[in-house]
Design a protein around this nucleic acid. Structure first.
Length: 745
DNA sequence: TATCGAACATTTTTT
DNA sequence: ATGTTCGATA
């Protein structure tokens, strides 16, 4: 048992509650007599409390949107430790995204005084990686194995097809990658795949060849991390028993998003004496298209005879109307596990529906509403504009940009995915492992050093014949001299690999000529800045590592950094801190919440997307997507659609989405261009202030520069009061009454 | 070897 | 409409 830690009893500071949106949780009446570890439990509702304090048995928590899912998960971990039921080392918590893992660790760090890095909290892939690093020999991997991201994998497959002389018309690399990943996620090695036709047989051969290539190069893709660690545990009984005994409690977040392999992987950890605690929401399963199996929730209950099934149905996030709309929409889905969210929050504002003529007008509408809201003091960062597909962001961005509203688009290229960063990392990967052909090919001639396609082809032939990596094949090449400079560079870098990581990175950037290359490029400024940022990232990484580990310049630092870069591509984006309107797809919004949410493009064919209607269960998944979108909003929800929309350069006509019709009409408030103007004033219930000015709508005024005008809208009060005035030929303007010198004729 | 233009595709996406 | 990829050309 761990020594009891008194600091655990510290009440959770307000700053921790707020991001989760739990600020409206009622007080802790009647629980004064609780002793210290139990203070962790203060403020939980009955169901949350029941879930958090469940005995060490398998459990499924069906946690509706905004019901305090993450809080339950983290509080349970803290509770298990604080109450002495488990040591920190006996707990494993699995999430899907790095962000979720980080958030869990951050909250735990505040709730407990544990050194949070000792906990096995991480993503499926992160934990799988950890296992493989620890047991690389048993897993049959080289010690310095590297992780390929999706782009690397695709490149590897293209290379494979070329090497085998396979027809890449017949086997499109993307499709082959999808096939291979799908097999791995079904737990199948090439030998296990059933092929009933020539085409599939050939694809299985290519799968086998791909595996051989990966092993030769010492690289693993994302699916391989899962499959190989799964096999490691499945085949190695002592190891499996070790982990089964070690992790008494296994907690899983977003369980509805697990694929088959991930569920099987989890099951390997479950033995006689441990408990699997899964939290999920079948109504928020929006990743079936990439293999997520909601059926895992049913299977889990059945296979483990789960007796503890708790529903968290109280929503702490949204106003009543918003929740009612969400419930009404999702009720149209058959075969749910069943759940009805409720709230004690006020009904709030009705849901505003806007029918635009076209996408440009829809965007203008959104922008004008946002301007009105921000003028009333709504922080821009609390406003999200959601859409079904990325293509829709263009019109919105255009309107926001024209209006000079700061905005941030999620889902762009991530830091470690930028070309210049991948180049730099490729050099570092060669330092760690010169036989990494993907890395080799990426930079052998970048910056250019006179090694052309022809030379590479010769080298490939030699390497294939000898069964070695490209790097190893160089010396066998007749014109090996061509590579002298490159080999020399790699040798020199390998010789200084023992230097502190930031220094090694710095040296790599200089010696490789990457810096010089981008300095010479006209538009290379940003790329140079990114390369500098990579040095910073390395320094930051080392600093963080040295906090957690004793050895800070062990030879694994480089390997760890490279794994970090692959596993956590980094959300690094410009202007992160700035107060900006948030633009993202509905998928990207899962798990987030905002005061105000706009859902755009609610049209048949777009949302629900026409492609989805062709797939089995597609409409249901679209509806869950709608449910996710709606439940992101705390106080104000806007739904908009357009009659026509520019798509692929053509005008498309569409009718309003069926999802709009699934919302009871009395929850909705249709807006029109004319009615809109005055609506938002009452919108999110700022205390009404007296206007404090002498103007009224319809009043005629005179402006020294713009001439005669008529007031068409007024808003705000006191010094913030503004009027929208139509000056005829001079246009329609918003003017601050405290600034503009208006005469009343 | 770099650059230009044609062909192409364009739901959602983390690791 | 627009970004990406691939092949032909200087």
């Amino acid at each position: 048992m761990p020594p009891f830690d008194r600091s655990i009893a510290a009440p959770m500071p307000e700053s921790v509650k707020r991001p989760g949106g739990f600020s409206r949780i009622p007080g802790t009446q009647g629980r004064d007599s609780y002793n210290e570890p139990m203070q962790l439990l203060a403020g939980l509702n009955d169901e949350q409390l029941a879930a958090v304090t469940l005995p060490a048995q398998h459990a499924l928590i069906i946690a509706g949107a905004g019901s305090g899912k993450t809080r339950v998960l983290t509080t349970r971990i803290a509770w298990l430790i604080a109450s002495g039921q488990a040591a920190a080392t006996q707990i494993m918590a699995v999430t899907f995204t790095n962000k979720a893992a980080r958030e869990m660790l951050a909250r735990l760090g505040v709730m407990t005084s544990l050194n949070v890095k000792n906990l096995w909290v991480g993503t499926f892939h992160g934990l799988a990686h950890r296992l493989l690093r620890a047991h690389w020999r048993d897993a049959g991997l080289p010690q310095g194995f590297q992780i390929m991201d999706a782009a690397d994998q695709l490149a590897a497959i293209k290379r494979l097809l070329k090497a085998l002389g396979a027809d890449d018309e017949k086997f499109p690399p993307k499709e082959l990658a999808w096939f291979i990943n799908a097999q791995k996620e079904a737990g199948l090695r090439p030998e296990g795949v059933e092929a009933h036709d020539d085409y599939t047989r050939r694809r299985v051969e290519l799968y086998a060849a791909y595996e051989a290539q990966c092993m030769r190069e010492g690289v693993v893709d994302f699916a391989e991390l899962m499959l190989r660690s799964y096999e490691l545990l499945a085949r190695n009984e002592p190891l499996r028993l070790h982990y089964q005994r070690r992790f008494r409690h296994i907690l899983v977040d977003e369980f509805q998003d697990t694929n088959r392999l991930q569920y099987q992987w989890l099951k390997r950890f479950v033995g006689e004496e441990n408990a699997l605690f899964c939290v999920g929401d079948d109504d928020q399963s929006i990743y079936a298209f990439r293999g997520a199996e909601v059926a895992n929730m049913h299977d889990f209950v059945r296979e483990f005879e789960v007796a503890n099934l708790i529903r968290l149905e109280r929503n702490y996030r949204s106003h009543g109307n918003i929740l009612a709309a969400a419930n009404a929409v999702i009720a149209n889905n058959p075969a749910r596990l069943g759940k009805n969210l409720w709230t004690e929050a006020p009904m709030g504002e009705p849901i505003r529906v806007y029918a635009a003529h076209d996408d440009a007008e829809e965007a203008r509408f959104v922008v004008e509403e946002i301007q009105a809201l921000t003028r009333q003091g709504m922080p821009a960062a609390e406003i999200a504009v959601l859409y079904r597909s990325n293509a829709q962001s263009r019109a919105l961005e255009h309107a926001l940009f024209s209006a000079d509203l700061p905005y941030r688009v999620y889902g762009g290229l991530r830091f470690f995915e930028r070309a210049e960063i991948k180049h730099a990392l490729a050099y570092l990967r060669l330092v760690a492992n010169p036989h990494d052909d993907t890395a080799f090919l990426r930079v052998v001639n970048f910056p250019a050093r006179g090694i052309g396609a022809r030379t590479i082809e010769q080298l490939s032939d030699v390497a294939r014949a000898a069964g070695t990596s490209l790097y190893a094949a160089i010396e066998k090449l007749p014109n090996a001299a061509k590579f002298a400079g490159f080999c020399d560079l790699i040798q020199r870098l390998r010789a200084i690999a023992h230097l502190p990581l930031p220094e090694l990175v710095e040296q790599t950037l200089e010696a490789s000529g990457l810096r010089a290359h981008y300095r010479a490029e006209r538009e290379g400024q940003e790329r140079l800045a990114n390369l500098d940022e990579l040095v910073n990232a390395a320094a930051g990484f080392v600093a963080e590592q040295s906090l957690n580990r004793a050895s800070n310049d062990s030879p694994t630092v480089l390997l760890d950094f490279l794994a970090h870069a692959s596993l956590e591509a980094g959300e690094h984006q410009a202007d992160e801190g700035r107060d900006a309107v948030q633009l993202m797809t509905v998928h990207a919004a899962k798990g987030l919440e905002f005061d105000v949410v706009f859902v755009c493009g609610l049209e048949e064919g777009l949302f629900p997307h026409e492609q989805s209607l062709l797939e089995r269960g597609g409409l249901e998944e679209e509806r869950r997507l709608m449910y996710v979108a709606v439940t992101r909003a705390k106080r104000l929800l806007y739904l908009s659609h357009a009659q026509t929309r520019q798509l692929h350069g053509q005008t498309r006509y569409a009718v309003a989405s069926r999802f709009l019709e699934e919302i009871p009409i009395d929850l909705l408030k249709p807006l029109t261009m004319r009615s809109r103007r005055r609506e938002y004033a009452s919108s999110w219930a700022l205390p009404a202030r007296s206007a404090g000015h002498r103007f009224h709508i319809g009043q005629s005024v005179r402006h020294s520069a713009f001439g005669e005008g008529v007031i068409i809208a007024l808003e705000g009060g006191g010094r913030d009061a503004r009027a929208q005035i139509n000056f005829g030929a001079a246009g329609i303007k918003w003017l601050a009454l405290s600034v503009a010198k208006l005469e009343v004729p």
